[in-house]
């Protein structure tokens, strides 16, 4: 039999010791229930479950505030739970605490969702706070449990209501949708089959806003070549609610 080289013996011992340390450490430090359910300590679930719940869920509110709930469900706020606006109210609902839930009457609160933000889905009702009745409380005009249902008629607003609404209060209110969009007639009956076109050239804007355009004198003119640099007009101005001066 060949002799094992002398070097290997201390190395083997060293590695076995290290391995042993690992095994012992696992024994000592890995919690008992680790891995029972997944890659975590199973008892952590009970600990978390034992924590008091701060939110009650909207169903609990129905016992006493059913009227509000019914009204809300018929409005476009139907998808919002009570505690989204009123904050955690479990203590109030169970009668544990006399403290009433907060009532968000400030303008800031509604703007969390309705303040204009280009990343919001198209058509989501948005306002520019300093243009939309500045200084007045939203709840003075809008019932938060049943915000105004926007009515629509007219051929485009039947389906693109939010956009039509926005345009209606913007400086483009006098424009027709078709001033900018080319829309085949069948789009109104088969919208997903027959596509309406979005503007693809800045000329769409240029026909009114370019220096030499024939539009009315009240229309602001800009230098099409310089203004806006490398970006498209609608990367800065939302065409259905263009902003330039506040």
């Amino acid at each position: 039999m060949r002799k094992i080289p002398q070097q290997l013996i201390p190395l083997a011992v060293l590695f076995i010791v290290l391995l042993g340390v690992l095994v012992v450490a696992r024994q000592l430090f890995v919690p008992k229930t680790f891995g029972d359910l997944g890659h975590y300590r199973a008892t952590a679930v009970d600990e978390v479950a034992a924590q008091p719940a701060a939110y009650a869920g909207y169903r609990v509110c129905l016992d006493c505030h059913d009227d509000i709930y019914q009204r809300k469900q018929l409005s476009s706020h139907a998808g919002l739970a009570c505690e989204t606006c009123h904050g955690a109210a479990a203590a109030h609902a169970t009668g544990e605490s006399d403290q009433l839930p907060t009532v968000p009457r400030g303008r800031d609160h509604c703007q969390l969702c309705h303040g204009y933000n280009s990343a919001r889905p198209t058509g989501f009702p948005q306002i520019l706070s300093n243009m939309h009745n500045p200084g007045e409380a939203c709840v003075k005009c809008h019932d938060s449990h049943s915000p105004r249902m926007a009515k629509g008629n007219g051929e485009c607003s039947a389906c693109h209501q939010m956009i039509a609404n926005q345009k209606a209060v913007s400086s483009h209110m006098s424009l027709d949708c078709t001033d900018c969009h080319t829309v085949p007639i069948d789009h109104a009956t088969q919208p997903r089959v027959v596509q309406a076109l979005k503007p693809n050239s800045e000329e769409t804007c240029g026909k009114c806003h370019a220096r030499g355009s024939s539009a009315g004198a009240e229309v602001a003119r800009i230098d099409m070549a310089e203004h806006g640099g490398r970006y498209l007009c609608w990367e800065c101005h939302y065409p259905h609610l263009p902003e330039a001066k506040l």
């Binding site: 080289p5 070097q7 201390p10």
Partner: peptide, 18 residues
Amino acid sequence: TLGSTDLSEKALAFDNKA
């Protein structure tokens, strides 16, 4: 050295190979 003090030719050759 970890106690491995063998400096024979064979041991050195093994060091090299390892």
